[in-house]
Design a binder for these strands. Sequence first.
DNA 1: GAGTTATGCTATATCGATTTAGCCCAGCGT
DNA 2: ACGCTGGGCTAAATCGATATAGCATAACTC
Lengths: 339, 339
Amino acid sequence: MKGISIKDIAKQAGVSPTTVSFVLNGKAKEKRISDQVSKKIQKIAGKLKYKPNQLARGLRTGKTKTIGLIVEDIANNFFATLAKVVEDEADKYGYKVLYGSTEDNTEKAKGLLEVLKYRQVDGYIITPTKNLDKEIEQLQGAGKPIVLMDRYFPQMPSHYVVVDNYKGAYVATEHLTKQGYSKIAIVTTTSDQVQMKDRLQGYNDALKAAGITPNKTLVKKLPFDLDREGFNDEIKKFLTSVKGLDAVFFATNYLGIYGIESIRSLGWTIGKEIGVVSFDDHDIFRLHSPAITCVAQPLQQIGENLVSILMKELNQPTTALQQVVLPLDLIIRPSSLHK
Amino acid sequence: MKGISIKDIAKQAGVSPTTVSFVLNGKAKEKRISDQVSKKIQKIAGKLKYKPNQLARGLRTGKTKTIGLIVEDIANNFFATLAKVVEDEADKYGYKVLYGSTEDNTEKAKGLLEVLKYRQVDGYIITPTKNLDKEIEQLQGAGKPIVLMDRYFPQMPSHYVVVDNYKGAYVATEHLTKQGYSKIAIVTTTSDQVQMKDRLQGYNDALKAAGITPNKTLVKKLPFDLDREGFNDEIKKFLTSVKGLDAVFFATNYLGIYGIESIRSLGWTIGKEIGVVSFDDHDIFRLHSPAITCVAQPLQQIGENLVSILMKELNQPTTALQQVVLPLDLIIRPSSLHK
DNA sequence: GAGTTATGCTATATCGATTTAGCCCAGCGT
DNA sequence: ACGCTGGGCTAAATCGATATAGCATAACTC
């Protein structure tokens, strides 16, 4: 039970494998194969349910019809949902997806790139970790299409699809100031990559615009690799250390989730004693009591853009960089309204 | 920049590609290659960072070191987390994973199997949809190792890893009865696959054991393909239609999530007016106020078992069926304590 | 009717690895 | 000196598809 090959069809049709290949690749006209033979081959191929062996084809053509998707953490709701969008979109073009999670670890990311490379994926969608620019440039140099997501390297030209992190954070913070909150903290990551920098900058600028002077003691940066308890401990320690704190902005969805948990275990009432806003939407934020205000990312759009750019590059590489910055939505909920 | 091939190494070492292949595949001794040559080849391969082209190797050997993972919905927390475990475990054996979501749709599942088949994956981990048994049997007949997860076909022999759904549902329901709830509804899916049947059976039997007669008007079955609004409408309609209802058991995590949302939009207080228990744990259940009692699945264990069984079958196919039923944990939280 | 062009198809090399069959040489026995 | 054994290595076939070069035969030109 090894599957039908092009030879089987050739034999049945009484022609050469070459002819079969031409016909099945739509080159019948171009290669001057008669309609008669052409139809006969089509019919036999249909009857035998012939599917070309992708390995053989890939070996010969160098195209595997596979794309590599590298995310931070596939178990995270944001990336999982995005992965599904990417998978669905890629499928429309006949591409399959190989995934991998970096856990925000550059060594793991390098390993993933290595594996995907020798599996000959045609193109990459990458959520880069810090310092991954060297490897990415190498791949680009090798002519592999790459689209970055969620973040990019400002000093390195590349295609990317990101969201307007600066404005998202600005609007979220501005919303808090307008609600009357004035001692507003931010809990963010230690990452100094562009997306987090922008969010911090948006937060700072919104404060200034409201006449509030940003204060370093109101900024807490946490590493990615803590466990749940670690996050909760750090957040609690931080929140209790700030005197007069009346609101917090969590800069990622997982920080928001840990943040809620921490605040609750401190016995504080969200929306009363402390205003809360988080980056990224999540079922939890919608269902929490009170529901949590957030800056939602347009997942469907991000995924569509990623795949469509990659496909364009796969089919007709251009020199023009495609850089998409999508707008964010502030979804206002009770967690930030009761000052 | 096409990557190093075995020929490049052969040329540099002044030997034939055959020799290189033998050495790099650990057959040096067996094929009587001298230590001298062997070491030289190793060294050159290391220096050039040689990675075998998986396509070529796959074409020749029929092994792609890739497994196909078919889940119900990769965007669902349960499957996403499991996917990550599977990915990590598979990686330990040098395998990569190709994913796909069925959306509980048999046609989509068939399509996925088709694609994975002609991508020559070595083995499959499948969350089967209804009526997928024919296709699965065919694959088994073709000698492809398959491990089913989450559910299986009772009439069809196969390897599988599932949880003790019957007992899980039994314990959850029993817990409710012990807390004094007596009019206990269940919201489950229309699926008549074994996992849902078992859960329903566990629910029914626990009621009987508590001296309560199961009542069909307390059972609501919903299809998979509703949207959020559809689920909420149906659940609300159902819950309000039952007179004297004092508790609900939601048979999957997404039903639990929609259920919470529905109950809240009805203005009922969970844990007071209505007891709630759900299958599967989820951050939402932990963080909800009140937190939701649930039957948690051992994700790590499930993933480890799936991969280890598959690897065993890949390396030394046996006739012995490996069927693992893992125990579940009832995590008691306030949503079911205040009768 | 010799030379040219078009038509319709095929033989063969190729992608990069693995695998089978077997060559060549040295050493040994008799 | 002849045959035999075993050590050390390689040529060539193979996996399945695609790409290149080219071979017949028919048709057309003048």
